[in-house]
Each structure stands twice: as C-alpha cells, then as structure tokens.
Design a protein around this nucleic acid. Structure first.
Length: 407
DNA sequence: CTTCACCTAAACAATT
DNA sequence: TAATTGTTTAGGTGAA
C-alpha cells in the first residue's frame, strides 16, 4: 500500500513538534517526503533537501483547519483502501480455496485479517453517535490541541464521524473510496454506486464544459451522468428530472437552438455569480466534515481532492478515458482549498478566478438504515464488474426495480 | 426563526 | 399517440 496511508505519518505531521521528533528518529526519511517532493496530499511542493522539506512542512502544513481536514480525508482514504484490500483478500482466498482445496472448504476465508477490524470499526462507528467530534476545524485553536495529542484523537473520532464505511451500495451514501491508485480513483464513481458529492448544477456544468464544443444536448448530459457515475444508472427518472429542473432553473445554463435541436451551454459569468454565496458557506465544508452526518459529502469532495492531487497527470491527458473525474476532483480540490482559505481569511473575494465547481454543497445525504451485512455491494471496484464501464450509453438505466432508497 | 441553496416530486406545455 | 424536453411550483432538509 502506499506509505502515505500511514495514519501515523499523517498525524505526526499535524504536530510540528512531533514532526521534528520523527525527524530525529529518521534523519532524512519521512513518509511525506520523497524524490524531493512533499507528498502531502495535494502539495507536491518541491523541496531540495530534507531541511527545506521540514521547513515547508511546518509552514505549509501546520496544524490548521486545512491540514486537519486533509488528514481526515487521508484517513478515509486509508480506511477505504483497507476495506478494499480486505475484500480482495477474501476474494483471493476464495479463489485459492476454489482452485486448490476445492469443495472441501466451501467457505473460503472470511478472515480478512486485521483489516476486518477496520471494517467492524467503521460499522460500529457508523452506529455510534455521529457527533462525537471533538474538534471544530473552524476554530483553529481548539481543534488543534486534540490533534496534537496523537493519532487516537483524530483517528477514532473522525473515523466515526466519517463513518463512510457503511458503504452499502445504497444511493444515499457518498462513500468514496479512494486510493492512491489513480486508476482506481478515476474508476471509482464509474463503478461504485456512490453518490457524487457534487450538486447537479456542478455536474451539469462539468459535463458541458468537458464536451469539445462546450455544449450538450439534454440526452448527452444524461449520458455523461450515467457514463461517469454508476450512481446515476439507477433511478433515472429521479435524477433526470433533477437535471432538467436544474437546467431550467439556473440562469447559468443557457439553452441554445442548434441543428441537433437544442443544446445547453454554461454561462460562466452566471455560474460564477452563484459562487460568492456558496463561498460564504464554504467554511461549512470543514465543519461538515465533522459535525453532521452530512460530513460524508464534503469529505468526499475532499477525498476527491486528495485523489486529484495524485491523478493530475492522468486526467490532464484529455485523451484519457475519463478525464472528468480528475477534473471534478481538481476542481473540488480547489474548492476545498478555497474553503480552507476562507476559513482562515474570511472575506477574500468572490474569487472569480477560482474553480467554479461548487461542490461544497453536499448532495443531501439522507440517513439510511444502515445495513450491517453490507451485502456484496458493488463497492468493490473489482466486484462491480456487473457495471461494465463501457456500457451502452444509449441505453438508459431506467429505474430499476431495485430502489431500496425509496421510502 | 429566517433565509438560502439543494433535492425531489410532479404537473403541464411544447417538441419530436 | 407516446416519449422527450422544458418550465414551474411545491414541499422538505440542512446549514448559516
């Protein structure tokens, strides 16, 4: 796995003091430093030597709201990876059992190792009161303290809060998965029925902007949704209605008559106008991450952000299968950073130059009776083979009978 | 408590 | 005529 996933590493970073300590222990090695680059999620700052790295670490990644939030994201990334690993190990075990031991032991090896612990933890965590969040990122002072105390604080609590692990393939949880593995990241939303942490407006805009001509027909937008997000392969009637609704409602979406009929374009100016409002609410992103159950949404955004960092080179290749997620992620990353900035320095501006992605607003995460047995949800990227990434776009995934999220 | 941004549902008109 | 596309209205949630 990736070394960054080390919770310890992350946490240690949070405390400048500890930082120096670990430094002493490991003279010139640091999980967050490699190849002359800061490996802090989303940083990648070039640091000629270890000293400058430490300097950079302490100045740029000090114990503040942003770092704290990023740390949480990283924790979730790790957790998801562990879950994934546990699943795959189980699968591997089953495969081996099947091939070697054959029928003898029908039950493969439900012993996902210690990883299981993480699973159980999350499960119980999700069941636990989701508001045992001690820190309030919004208040740099308070939150920091606990963090400094050690991993336990952040880990446990945030894990609980984040409790994303009840990754049922329900449509209501924005359970990101993440990974340092870029490929997987990009494929995540495509394969996992996880609700993307973006508003419809943002998604629509993204879809349109991604098109060569910056314009799409309604149907093309639909296709983009289903192509990019497994989540939107269900309950089509619902989200399609929402898409249309958004197109009509927001002034930032302009309908243009075209040969093909009519296409939708984005009025960036209008879209930007909306941002200031959201920006003001940005700080909430951080807060959300730990205060309400809505946290998972923004967290996802953050997660995406972190993933984006890693995938930048990938999604920049327009030729790639789906640079979209990357873009989304990067956009969100900016959003996240922006939010952070705003948190520290309020009234900056309506930042027109910043990414327009308004992912801050969570797509409501409705509480869903979590289902412990987490079924064999498609969570597993590998497992989701049933959702062929290259499914027929023209074939809409109309409401499947399976809409357990409908009360 | 109010406002705001979002989401979902649904009615209905216009097009295809 | 049926399906699709657009427009509107209404109700509900959560955050500020």
């Amino acid at each position: 796995m990736n070394p960054h996933a080390s919770t310890n590493g992350q946490l240690s970073v949070h405390t400048p003091k500890r930082e120096s300590l670990s430094h002493e222990e490991h003279p010139h090695s640091h999980p967050l430093y490699g190849h002359g680059v800061c490996k802090w999620p989303g940083c990648e700052a070039v640091c000629e030597d270890f000293q400058s790295f430490l300097k950079h670490l302490n100045s740029e990644h000090a114990l503040d709201d942003r770092s704290t939030a990023q740390c949480r994201v990283q924790m979730q990334v790790v957790q998801q990876l562990e879950l994934q690993l546990a699943k795959d190990k189980e699968r591997l075990q089953a495969m081996m059992t099947h091939l070697h031991v054959k029928s003898t032991e029908p039950k493969a090896a439900p012993q996902p190792l210690n990883l299981v612990s993480s699973v159980t933890l999350s499960k119980s965590a999700s069941e636990a009161s989701p508001q045992s969040l001690p820190h309030t990122p919004t208040t740099p002072t308070a939150p920091l303290t606990p963090v400094t105390q050690g991993p336990s604080v952040i880990t446990t609590t945030s894990m609980h809060t984040v409790g994303p692990i009840r990754r049922r393939y329900s449509d209501k949880y924005n359970v990101p998965i993440s990974s340092a593995d870029i490929a997987q990241n990009q494929e995540f939303y495509k394969n996992a029925e996880v609700r993307p942490p973006f508003t419809y407006a943002s998604l629509i805009r993204q879809a349109i902007l991604e098109s060569p001509e910056k314009q799409l027909t309604l149907n093309e937008i639909y296709n983009w949704f289903t192509r990019m997000f497994a989540y939107f392969r269900r309950n089509a009637a619902t989200w399609k209605n929402a898409v249309r609704h958004n197109l009509s409602l927001h002034k930032c979406f302009v309908r243009v008559e075209n040969v093909k009929g009519a296409v939708w374009t984005v009025d960036e100016v209008e879209f930007q106008k909306r941002r200031p409002q959201k920006i003001s609410g940005n700080p909430s992103l951080i807060k959300n991450m730990q205060s309400s159950h809505a946290y998972c949404t923004p967290l996802n955004a953050a997660l995406q952000a972190s993933m984006a960092e890693n995938s930048i080179p990938l999604y920049t290749t327009a030729s790639m299968g789906n640079p979209t997620l990357g873009n989304l992620a990067s956009a969100i990353r900016e959003e996240l950073n922006g939010a952070m900035e705003h948190t520290n320095s309020n009234e900056s501006d309506s930042s027109p130059g910043r990414s327009p992605m308004q992912a801050v607003h969570p797509v409501h995460v409705k509480e869903e009776p979590l289902d412990p047995e987490e079924a064999e949800g498609p969570l597993s990227l590998v497992t989701t083979a049933n959702h062929s990434p290259d499914f027929d776009h023209d074939r809409d995934y109309e409401d499947e009978p399976v809409n357990e999220d409908m009360e």
